[in-house]
């Protein structure tokens, strides 16, 4: 079956997502229920439901334009910043609906951090980049508090040894991989519960990518991580569970090994085996 034939599949048909349970079930951190996303009149994401387990890495994969990044941005309401974008459905985190309009996005985004596709350090010093979040949220009581947060965050991100002597230098002067780890440290500094990563390695070279992947695996111990990636090998390397998106539908989700080794859906299989993508 070719990609064009797939593209012609009628959108009205309600696909049922194929779900494969974890052999050792974990506590659910976020539960998305029947989420739809619209750009203006166009529906970009159709009735997606998925449970994200706590303290694990969930990878969203799929061909470009499949809606995986759009879905990721629902978790910290970043879609709010896009004109004409509308999200319908429930996203429960610890029993609260993230998508409720009464939800304070400021607080939400402190709880759900995000790392972007391209490293985007602020044009400030390394120190100020990390201290930015704690400062705006007022979580540091003193200068020494803040110093501790900065050191801790950089350590967690595995950057402390590399930058501890040049904390006052601009963050934009670091290498691409270092910048991305700086952005991860920046997200950690406000001690979020969930970290969203939108193709965090797509702008990095292989060595920097390996370094970031290693970091993701370490962070899994303490954070719930959702990562969007177009690299299947990366998903295999870092994630516990994988969800495959296709043309705005969540096709299949389950433990990473089972998705890659024994895909149930033909489309998933075609994608994974490289028929298209």
């Amino acid at each position: 079956m070719s990609a064009t034939a797939l593209a012609e599949a009628p959108h009205e048909t309600r696909y049922e997502t194929i779900r494969i349970a974890d052999p050792s079930p974990r506590e659910t951190k976020i539960s998305a229920q029947d989420v739809h996303v619209y750009y203006g009149a166009k529906e970009a994401l159709h009735h997606v439901s998925i449970d994200i387990p706590a303290k694990s890495v969930t990878a969203f994969i799929g061909p470009s334009g499949c809606g995986k990044s759009t879905f990721l941005r629902c978790f910290n309401r970043m879609n709010d910043t896009i004109d004409g974008c509308r999200v319908v459905g429930r996203l429960d985190m610890d029993g609260e609906d993230l998508n409720d309009h009464r939800q304070d996005v400021v607080l939400l985004r402190a709880r759900v951090g995000m790392v972007f596709q391209k490293p985007n350090p602020f044009p400030k010093s390394i120190y100020d980049n990390i201290a930015y979040g704690p400062r705006i949220h007022g979580v540091a009581r003193s200068k020494s508090d803040l110093d501790a947060i900065v050191e801790h965050s950089l350590t967690r991100a595995g950057l402390w040894q590399e930058v501890k002597d040049r904390l006052q230098e601009p963050g934009t002067g670091l290498s691409g991989g270092q910048q991305q780890r700086l952005c991860i440290a920046r997200a950690i500094a406000v001690s979020p519960e969930v970290i969203l990563m939108d193709e965090p390695c797509s702008a990095l070279d292989p060595i920097a990518t390996a370094r970031v992947e290693e970091l993701i695996r370490e962070l899994r111990e303490n954070y719930t991580i959702i990562i969007v990636t177009h690299s299947m090998s990366q998903a295999q390397r870092v994630s516990d569970r994988t969800a495959y998106f296709h043309l705005g539908y969540l096709v299949e989700e389950g433990p990473t090994e089972s998705i890659f080794n024994d895909p149930q859906e033909k489309r998933t299989k075609d994608y994974i085996t490289g028929v298209f993508g």
Binding site: P123, I136, H137
Partner: peptide, 20 residues
């Protein structure tokens, strides 16, 4: 990307404008 970075950390719009 600068704005997104700041919003993603939970900054309000005015904080983003003033500080980033």
């Amino acid at each position: 990307a600068m704005r997104n970075g700041s919003f993603g950390l939970g900054a309000t719009q005015s904080e983003t404008i003033r500080k980033v």
